[in-house]
């Protein structure tokens, strides 16, 4: 079975832990419980070709107290870059976080999750911005850890991308 390290990266309070909990344990809590440091969870994913064990590194959000430790990204096969679609400050941080990730992991697949999609009245990520990101070749998926919308799809997309990357490296 393939074992792949996946890093959950993003500003604080965007729902990284909730997404992992939804994906791994199918549960959700409305209460914001901040993460300190890292928590590693595992989830087995069945792909058409083979099974994959995802090692999900839920990394503490970036804020005034905490920078993203580059060493946490080492050896990652995939990155989930999470923003909160209702908070403009987190949307603005997206490009720089993406650059930061790219400076350490040039070829590694990255999937962008715009989370809290259930809060439709507060949604701030414009269709234009979303389209531009997609036009730039990025995979952007609107998710809701609360309802589960888009969550399975997002992890499946990343798993497929990691598998393709793995195959292309093998072919080389």
């Amino acid at each position: 079975m393939l074992v792949k390290k996946v890093c959950m990266v993003g500003p604080f309070a965007v729902g990284k832990t909730s997404l992992v909990k939804r994906f791994v344990e199918s549960i959700f809590s409305d209460k914001y419980h901040t993460t300190i440091g890292v928590k590693v969870s595992k989830k087995k994913v069945e792909l058409a070709q083979e099974s994959m064990q995802m090692m999900l590194w839920d990394i503490e959000g970036v804020d005034v107290f905490t920078e993203l430790k580059s060493s946490y990204l080492r050896g990652a096969s995939g990155v989930m870059l999470v923003i909160d679609g209702t908070r403009p400050t987190t949307i603005r941080q997206l490009n720089e976080l993406l650059s930061l990730v790219r400076s350490y992991l040039q070829e590694t697949p990255v999937v962008i999750l715009a989370n809290k999609f259930d809060l439709t009245n507060e949604w701030k990520l414009s269709q234009d911005d979303a389209t531009k990101l997609r036009e730039n070749g990025l995979t952007l998926i609107e998710t809701s850890a609360k309802t589960g919308a888009g969550v399975e799809e997002a992890f499946a997309a990343l798993a497929q991308a990691m598998l393709r990357e793995c195959d292309s490296k093998t072919a080389e």
Binding site: F12, A13, T34, I36, F65, R87
Partner: peptide, 21 residues
């Protein structure tokens, strides 16, 4: 104890983010 400090600080930061904005 450490978590509580961070939790309150980030709760506050979220609230402040909204107010300042």
């Amino acid at each position: 104890e450490r978590h509580l400090v961070y939790q309150k600080a980030r709760d506050m930061a979220l609230l402040n983010e909204k107010l300042i904005s």
